[in-house]
Amino acid sequence: MKFVFLGALSLFLFGCTTLNEKMDNWTEKNNKREFQVKTAWVRRTTEKDNLGFRKINRMTPVIAGDLLIQGNAMDGVTAYERESGRLKWRLPIVNGVEPSATLIKDRLFFGASDGNFYSIAASTGEVQWAFQTKAENLSEPLLYEGVIYFLAGNNVFYALDAATGRQLWLYSRQDTSQFSIRGGGAPALRNGNLFVGFSDGSLVSLNAKTGNVVWEAQLNRNKRFRDIDSTPVLDGDLIYIAGYDDKLYCVSADKGEILWRVDGGGYSAVTVIGDKLFYPTTNGEIWALSKANGDKIWTHKLNEGIGTAIKSLKGVLVFGESQGSMFFLDQNTGKLLGSMEPGRGILAAPLVDEKNDRVYFISGEANLWALDAGWVRAPYF
């Protein structure tokens, strides 16, 4: 009887072990997550179908309360309800709006391709004032202490009174090159000094009050394209900025000295997260770099164009591809987690609403997309 009892006990313990292993495997599989991308809604931003030449839509959407505001490069600016995508108002502008805008309270500031810079009421679309630049405007503005700063397409940098649109000062820079990339970056600001990139390959620091030059640094010296079209990104007393088909530079904000450089040009600004830089290059790659010295950590190759500026969604990198899809990459490894093809590519940086796990962007077809993106529990069966 003793041997029978021991045999039964062994069988019982073996059965328990097997059952526990099955339970552990079931728990592991049931807790497994996958990254999911789904379309919440999509809207055409043009008043009529575009049957002609496709233009460059590069404006990042703007959240203004319950509204989502989007400009296109064809016929103007529109506002939609964030949740439903229902049209709220439309402001017609000849040749449309390409650059991203700046919002403060109910005032939205942006440059347009009709040769004007605008201040409008975000809630209604009513124009408050318009300032003539007599050139197309392709750069996002910056608002600081009641002054709006922006770079016009003819290499003239303006400072305007934000309340009235009155010109306070301007800084003009001549470019003798016959070749230039169409675009321009937003200015950056630190300790009362502005930092602006120009099409002649220079990065210039200007006093925000007077427009006087603090320092200037010649970065991009290419014979063909010398443009500094990316927005300078400040991190403490360092500036990270890219030259088109050139290099990524780390520059001191105080003196404009080049501290290090990495071969590989860029059109969009870098994104700083922790101790890393995330950088879309003009040769169609996404780089993760050490921000201390520019050493490469990982690379992700794109197949259909160049990447937009990169945004972060809870540890996931979000960016568009100029001739392809919206991509979602693991921040630590560069592994592809998901994608969505909107048609005719993406040139505008996306807007990420982390609170609601939603991504908004305009496609090359001038359609405004709202995507729900995030981690969900994978089905067990």
Rank of each mutant, 00 (worst) to 15 (best):
N222V: 10
S252F: 09
K355V: 15
R261G: 04
L170S: 15
S230W: 10
G274I: 15
E126Y: 15
V318D: 00
N155L: 08
P187H: 09
G85T: 15
W41H: 08
W26Q: 10
A79N: 04
L368D: 01
G343H: 13
P92Y: 05
S363W: 05
Y267A: 06
P99Q: 12
F328V: 12
L371N: 02
N207F: 02
A188V: 07
V127Q: 03
L234P: 02
G236W: 05
G305M: 13
D200W: 04
Q70R: 03
V376A: 02
G85S: 12
V4S: 10
G266D: 07
K32A: 12
P99H: 09
F3L: 09
E145T: 09
M23G: 08
G184I: 03
L259M: 14
H300L: 01
S177P: 07
L108P: 00
T46Y: 12
R224P: 07
G256S: 11
G15M: 14
S339V: 13
V214P: 00
Y149D: 13
P61H: 05
N191M: 12
S113G: 12
G65Y: 03
A186I: 02
R182V: 15
N30E: 09
N20T: 06
V147E: 14
I69P: 00
R107Q: 06
S199R: 06
V94G: 02
T102S: 05
V272P: 03
